[in-house]
């Protein structure tokens, strides 16, 4: 329990760690979504072109 409260500094320490990991994970998640969207757009366009030929 002591490790969690850290002599009243627990809130600050835990929120710093939490925020840092949250931002990193969020940034990674967003870049994955962005990548997949771009990939899908290109895929749709190229497949449509293929079918027309």
């Amino acid at each position: 329990m002591d490790a969690m409260t850290m002599g009243n500094y627990g809130v600050y320490v835990w929120s710093s760690f939490g925020l840092t990991f949250a931002v990193i994970i969020l940034s990674d998640w967003r870049s994955r979504i962005h990548h997949n969207r771009i990939y899908r757009d290109i895929e749709v366009r190229i497949k449509a072109l293929e079918e027309r030929q």
């Binding site: 990193i24 990674d28 870049s31 962005h34 990548h35 990939y39 290109i42 366009r45 190229i46 293929e50």
Partner: peptide, 26 residues
């Protein structure tokens, strides 16, 4: 790792009209 993933996205977007992207996707 995060940077490499973002560069990949950036490359894919910039090269979307090239042949290698077309061949890769097909």
């Amino acid at each position: 790792a995060l940077l490499a993933r973002r560069i990949r996205t950036e490359v894919l977007h910039r090269e979307r009209r090239t042949r290698w992207v077309r061949e890769m996707i097909l």
